[in-house]
């Protein structure tokens, strides 16, 4: 298999890894770089539990190759808190009971983060449409919408 050395910023830290060209970004982040907050759920880019931020866009890391991140900037759920202080979205998800089993939560948070960058004060409908690429089986979404609203107000 062809291997290639790639480097990118992961949560503001420069990382360098040797990957097979066919390796998925999700696997490299999880297995080589040890950031297991990003999950894999469906393999067809429907569920969004693998969502990470790549160069200012939400991407599904189970459907893009690690080599595509070469030279880029990646942010995962592990990069949300700063100096031990939880991001307002993280606080709001706890406050408004926006998670249960926690499996979709990292993808949900990182997508919400980008949504609020794109639209700092979204309406309920804009939140629902903006997060519709992320599935959750536990919460019924209602409290996630509430949490994103809460965070938007605080940010």
């Amino acid at each position: 298999m062809i291997k290639k050395k790639i480097s990118f910023k992961l949560n503001e830290q420069e990382v360098e890894v040797e990957v097979e060209t066919r390796e998925l970004l999700a696997h490299v982040i999880r297995e080589q770089l040890g950031k297991t907050g990003t999950h894999i759920g469906c393999d067809t880019s429907h569920c969004g539990v693998c969502t990470v931020d790549l160069n200012g866009n939400s991407v599904k890391s189970c459907t893009i190759l690690a080599v595509q991140a070469d030279g880029g900037e990646v942010m995962t759920v592990e990069g949300l808190a700063t100096n031990g202080e939880l991001h307002p979205l993280q606080q709001a998800f706890i406050q408004d009971h926006g998670l249960q089993c926690g499996f979709c939560t990292p993808g949900m948070l990182i997508r919400s983060y980008r949504l609020l960058q794109e639209n700092p004060s979204p309406t309920e409908e804009e939140i629902r449409v903006g997060l519709s690429g992320n599935l959750c089986r536990c919460t019924g979404y209602q409290n996630i919408v509430k949490a994103v609203k809460t965070a938007a107000e605080k940010m």
């Binding site: 067809t44 629902r128 449409v129 992320n134």
Partner: peptide, 17 residues
């Protein structure tokens, strides 16, 4: 047998409870 066909409602379809 993938989420392309098997219905998992998203934020958009799910009603208010």
């Amino acid at each position: 047998n993938t989420f392309m066909d098997y219905f998992i409602p998203s934020f958009v379809e799910t009603p208010q409870w």
